[in-house]
Design a protein around this nucleic acid. Structure first.
Length: 642
RNA sequence: GCUGGUGUAGCACAGUCGGUAGUGCAGCUGAUUCGUAAUCAGCAGGUCGUGUGUUCGAGUCACAUCACCAGCUCCA
């Protein structure tokens, strides 16, 4: 048989392992940790019995990283079993940035315990244990795991399909049920660190027992580990929740409550700038602005379906179950309110498409553990909108929504960080969703066509749809790598009917319209959070709450500095003056810490010449006439330069 | 909601064995008038998240509760 590795080919008479073949060809280096055959990751110990093309993997390959980290998770499990023999193992996969193992243990893994476990893991690495694979028939596999008192493993085996190959990996005294593949010794995991221990439900179901999840990171060398740790520390410096408070954009207060941030003057200014921009842009694109109430009687939500599907998520004013008394609820969504605009009078096909936009404040009673800075809150304001359409307008209007969203993301500089998610319903969970399978198939079919037609590269999310229809979600990750929805565009074929929305078509027939629910820029709080993280608080000029700070060197320059400030302010720039008696170096430092785009240093020379010395964030200084700076600054704002 | 962690001045942090709360920065006042990352001096600032308990005595111990953080589960 012929074996091809990289560019070399060699003939073998008898079966041979990947390792031995690669060694013959002198392709084995310390970096090689696994291999790929027919797109499948395999261990170097994999035996080859037929003509095969092999790709060798190192830690640089995604699959190599995965294999490496998976082995690290086995080392973790082994260490835990050595120190806590009573602990029960469940699953321990590799993840994006490292690995974890979920463990059921009566002992809680405190930070000190993690240190001990980490120490034990390093010992296992030093022991350089050989990792061996073996298979067992189902009954023997169950017997082995029963003997080792691993009930979760027994359950996992029982749930495997009839024809599944049941494999185990053994390293020293430790054996784990695992599909593999793995490194062939524990010694290659030169650098590892346990990062945290948190709770996680067995099988991700909150009705199940909560296990302890130990997270770790692992690298082939200490340098790579340290580099990663440093990089993470840098990323966390951009954390909006810290930076946004430090820069006085927002704060929270105990007595107001969870998920209810206070926008401080600077944060409120940025949001105002975003809001004006969004509303103007929508106006240009034919949107009609509405302003609807923040609450309504429960009757409205009964029509929309929110009462049945979303009651837990609403703030209810009054007793929701006492039908004899009036009961209100704050709105969690805008849809049923904005539909009343359409329903205001009889509509013709000529009125469509009707594009309604609203800067809409919503209230959602999130569970107490869900809140996170400005990203997940209980009250937020969204650039909301609904498009009411004839069927023949759906494709073009959907594209219009997509174009608008892309324009917003592009202008903000967030576009390249986003990914798409096609959120569909789960046919097995009809209790969660309104409508029939036929209606869902139709809506999802249309959406798929539209996404494909617009060249959107999306992932599919099952059971992530809204209760009334499928969604296109535009996702973005925060500094912790956690993904959230920034923008959503949804097709709804159900609510129009519930609300009796109809228009007269050209044949004088009453027809139910399609509706697109969409946001152009998402909700202001979340977008602000991601902008803070994107720019590390140094907003582009057009969004900076303070754009220019004027810094007179001495008292005799204050009057001129003031005149400069007034001139710039009159032209619409946001300018502050630092007329304190501090030294110029001190004033510059303060301005830099507050991430103001431009500072204008003014002394005797500038005063005499009628100029300013402009220092930007990069520390570059140029002296120019006031009018020149003003013109350039206004241009930068107008162009929304990043 | 669940698991774990954290709450001391605006911010960053000390606070030993339970014995009447400290440092630096920021702030205020005065002096200094300075050319690109910290001028000098003085002053003020606290119900130690909140409540209850144990104790002669609680920042410190116990219980409860609130908020903040990470993760799970949910979600814009």
């Amino acid at each position: 048989m012929k074996i091809k590795i990289q560019d070399q080919v060699r003939e073998y008479d008898a079966p041979v392992t990947v390792y031995d073949a690669a060694k013959d060809m002198e392709l084995i280096t310390r970096a090689v940790i696994g291999a790929e055959i027919d797109g499948k990751t395999v261990a170097l110990t994999q035996e080859i019995t037929a003509d095969t093309e092999v790709k060798l993997l190192t830690f640089e390959d995604a699959a190599g990283k995965h294999l490496f980290r998976h082995t690290a998770s086995h080392i973790l499990a082994q260490a835990v079993k050595r120190l806590y023999p009573a602990a029960k193992l469940t699953i321990g996969p590799a993840v994006d940035n490292g690995f974890y193992y979920d463990i059921d243990s009566d002992v809680t893994f405190t930070p000190d315990a993690l240190k001990a476990i980490e120490g034990e893991m390093k010992k296992i690495v030093k022991e350089n244990l050989k990792i061996e694979r073996f298979e067992l028939p189902r009954a023997d596999a169950i017997a082995l795991m029963t003997e080792k008192e691993e009930p979760y493993k027994v359950q996992l085996i029982e749930e495997l399909p009839e024809d599944a190959v049941i494999s185990f990996y053994r390293q020293g005294e430790f054996t784990d049920l695992c599909a593999g593949p793995h490194l062939f010794t524990t010694g290659a995991v030169k650098a590892l660190k346990l990062t945290q221990c948190t709770g996680a439900y067995w099988k991700g179901d909150q009705n199940n027992k909560m296990l302890q999840r130990i997270y770790g990171i692992a690298f082939p060398s200490k340098d790579e580990l340290n580099a990663y740790v440093t990089q993470q520390e840098e990323a966390l410096k951009r954390d909006h929740n810290k930076l946004g408070r430090d820069l006085e954009l927002f704060t929270t207060v105990d007595v107001i409550g969870q998920g209810l941030p206070i926008m401080l003057p600077k944060g409120a200014r940025v949001i105002q700038l975003l809001q004006r921009w969004v509303e103007d842009e929508e106006q240009k694109r034919g949107y009609l602005l509405t302003k609807t109430p923040l609450m309504a009687k429960r009757d409205l939500y009964k029509i929309s379906g929110h009462w049945d599907h979303y009651l837990d998520g609403m703030f209810v004013l009054g007793d929701p179950y006492d039908e004899t008394k009036e009961c209100f609820a704050l709105r969690p969504m805008t849809c049923p309110f904005q539909y009343q605009v359409f329903l205001n009078k009889k509509r013709s096909y000529r009125d469509l498409p009707m594009r309604l936009g609203e800067t809409s404040t919503l209230f959602r009673n999130e569970d107490s553990g869900e809140m996170h800075g400005l990203i997940r809150v209980r009250q937020f304001t969204i650039s909301e909108g609904h498009l009411i359409l004839r069927p023949d307008q759906l494709a073009e209007e959907f594209k219009g929504c997509l174009d608008l969203a892309m324009h917003m993301l592009d202008t903000l500089g967030l576009k390249e960080d986003c990914s798409f998610r096609f959120s569909q319903w789960d046919p097995a969970r009809t209790d969660k969703y309104e409508g029939t399978p036929e209606q869902w198939n139709e809506a999802q079919g249309i959406m798929k066509e539209l996404l494909d037609a617009n060249g959107i590269n999306y992932a599919i999310g099952i059971d992530e749809a809204a209760f009334y229809g499928p969604k296109l979600d535009i996702q973005i990750k925060n500094v912790f790598g956690k993904e959230d929805t920034l923008i959503t565009i949804q097709i709804d074929m159900l609510l129009a009917k519930k609300f009796g929305m109809e228009y007269v078509d050209s044949n004088n027939q009453m027809v139910t319209p399609y509706i697109i629910h969409r946001t152009s820029m998402g909700c202001y709080e979340r977008t602000l959070a991601l902008l803070i993280e994107k720019y590390a608080g140094a907003f582009p000029m057009w969004l900076a709450p303070e754009q220019v700070r004027v810094l007179p060197i001495g008292d005799e320059h204050v009057a001129y500095a003031k005149s400069v400030q007034e001139k710039l302010s009159a032209a619409g720039l946001r300018v502050e003056l630092d007329d304190s008696s501090n030294t110029i170096g001190y004033k510059i430092r303060n301005t830099q810490l507050q991430k103001v785009p431009y500072m204008l240093v003014i002394g005797a020379k500038e005063m005499e010449e009628g100029t300013v010395s402009v220092r930007n964030r990069a520390g570059e200084t140029v002296t120019k006439p006031v009018d020149t700076f003003l013109a350039e600054a206004l241009l930068e704002v107008a162009q929304k330069k990043r």
